[in-house]
Design a protein around this nucleic acid. Structure first.
Length: 474
DNA sequence: TGAAATGTTGGGGCG
DNA sequence: ACGCCCCAACATTTC
């Protein structure tokens, strides 16, 4: 027996059933629900490798959730407009619901989809679930977008608090009769080599584990967040970034979970949500920032862009232990601590004079939490070419950062086994260790571990000089 | 969400 | 007792 026409819910980066406004609304209408995820062939930017791994597991988790709710997830691939138009005619659906996304390139796509569907006599509705505050409602007094985080966040905090998360919908009516792709066919997982083998020991994608991690964080570690958040060796952060990036959690859920466990909006943790918010609003308002420095004069920066140095950087073979440990952790786990993102970012851009866009692309490929807005904002911030950003002359010293935030070298020993035998005193600076100590630790500089590929003091001077020249020209 | 250079102050060693 | 130097500790400025 054929079902009556369903309501289509198009899942994108909102791979959750709780606090999912589009799904919730569909569940309220007393009709079958047809949830669909589309592998978009016309996506503005193909997902990176690590994100694909996450997507695979997140989709399989979402499939399980939706089976429990009674409406299995349909997988299709192609251009979103074609797929949805086809689905609408196959199923007779008149209503297509989704949660709004804010990246202008994706919004352009959604507009096309809308036009096509409306042209076919369908109704399209979009809902708000991806952000805490609406970009259109968060502007300066004369209606301009904010460019400075503190002003932006102050205004956000003066508004009513974000609304409470919606509940998980009750049982959904299944729509029968359509078949979709098999997730495995999408080949989102790496085969040979399987570089993602280590990911699973660090992560469990999906809404259930996102919720568990959130609960664990707000109950046990939120209180120490401020004092530990910069310590990669102590696991002081929430590690929710990938769950948020794929929408397995909504920022509202994180907000209220933290609030109920004693966080104040002014506190450090919610402020981090503020940065996420700010990044998304910024990319929404300034689409070009994905690839172009917001300060125009950085267009002419005299980059060196040396392939050999780049290779050392990506392999975690720069000779600066904190940089190398961070880059190898990124490769092995698909994630990097935020403090270390700043350290390696500063190193790439300022010590090696390699354009931030290359770093941004590398992160895009290797981070499980790769998010166009946060990634571009972060790189513009660290390279000094954003409007609100670290001034260019703010150059991190990898040695000082390492010793300050990994004082016992615990993090280094975990990711750089070849240095693990060095005493605390030298592990951040193996090139200063006396030969006897190196020998005892089994370290051969230049063989088991590289000497520094640049001398930081000189690299710093060179970067400042390049920056000074830039200022002279403009 | 920086680091280095430079300036200032004050205590202690020492002739 | 005094002036001088050194240097650590801290503050300010500069990149």
């Amino acid at each position: 027996m054929a079902s009556s026409p369903p309501i289509i819910v198009w899942f994108r980066r909102d791979l959750r059933v709780t606090d999912n406004p589009a799904l919730y609304e569909a569940s309220q209408r007393g009709r079958p629900v047809l949830p669909v995820y589309i592998l978009e062939e016309d996506a503005p930017r193909p997902l990176g490798g690590a994100a694909k791994w996450w997507l695979h597991h997140s989709l399989s988790a979402l499939k399980r959730e939706l089976v429990c709710l009674g409406a299995p997830l349909l997988l299709r691939r192609g251009r979103a407009a074609d797929v949805l138009a086809h689905l609408a005619s196959e199923s007779g659906a008149t209503d297509i619901l989704w949660n709004q996304r804010y990246d202008p390139r994706e919004m352009a796509l959604d507009q096309t989809v809308t036009k096509v569907l409306v042209g076919l006599g369908r109704r399209v509705e979009s809902f708000k679930g991806a952000l805490l505050f609406e970009p259109a409602e968060t502007t300066t007094q004369n209606g301009q977008p904010f460019q400075i985080f503190t002003a932006f966040w102050r205004q956000c905090l003066s508004k009513p608090e974000p609304s409470r998360p919606l509940p998980r919908p009750a049982k959904l009516q299944e729509y029968f009769g359509l078949s979709g792709d098999d997730l495995a066919e999408w080949r989102l997982l790496p085969k040979k080599p399987d570089w993602a083998a280590g990911f699973a020991t660090s992560w469990t994608p999906g809404e259930d584990s996102a919720d568990a991690r959130l609960t664990d964080f707000v109950e046990d570690r939120l209180a120490d967040y401020l004092s530990l958040r910069n310590r990669p060796d102590l696991d002081g952060t929430s590690r929710l970034s990938a769950h948020l990036a794929f929408g397995e959690l909504s920022p509202r859920q994180v907000w209220h979970a933290a609030r109920m466990n004693g966080a104040f909006p002014e506190d450090g943790f919610l402020r981090q949500l503020g940065w996420r918010e700010f990044s998304h609003h910024m990319l929404h308002q300034f689409p070009a920032m994905a690839t172009t420095p917001r300060r125009a004069r950085f267009q002419d920066f005299p980059w060196q862009d040396d392939e050999e140095l780049w290779r050392h950087f990506t392999l975690g073979q720069t000779g600066y232990p904190i940089v190398d440990a961070a880059m190898r952790a990124l490769w092995e786990t698909g994630w990097m601590h935020n403090r270390l993102r700043m350290v390696v970012g500063s190193f790439l851009v300022k010590d090696l004079l390699i354009p931030w866009q290359r770093g941004e692309q590398w992160f895009w490929d290797t981070l499980v939490d790769a998010d166009p807005a946060c990634n571009a904002c972060g790189w513009q911030w660290i390279s000094g070419c954003g409007i609100e950003s670290a001034p260019y002359f703010r150059i991190f010293n990898p040695l000082i950062q390492g010793e300050r935030f990994d004082p016992d070298g615990q993090y280094l020993r975990r990711w750089l086994p070849e240095l693990s035998g060095l005493p605390d005193r030298f592990i951040h600076r193996p090139w200063e260790a006396p030969p006897t100590i190196l020998k005892k630790a089994g370290v051969q500089l230049g063989r088991t571990y590289p000497p520094p590929i640049v001398e930081h003091a000189k690299a710093r001077d060179r970067a400042l000089e390049a920056f000074a020249r830039l200022r002279l020209v403009h």
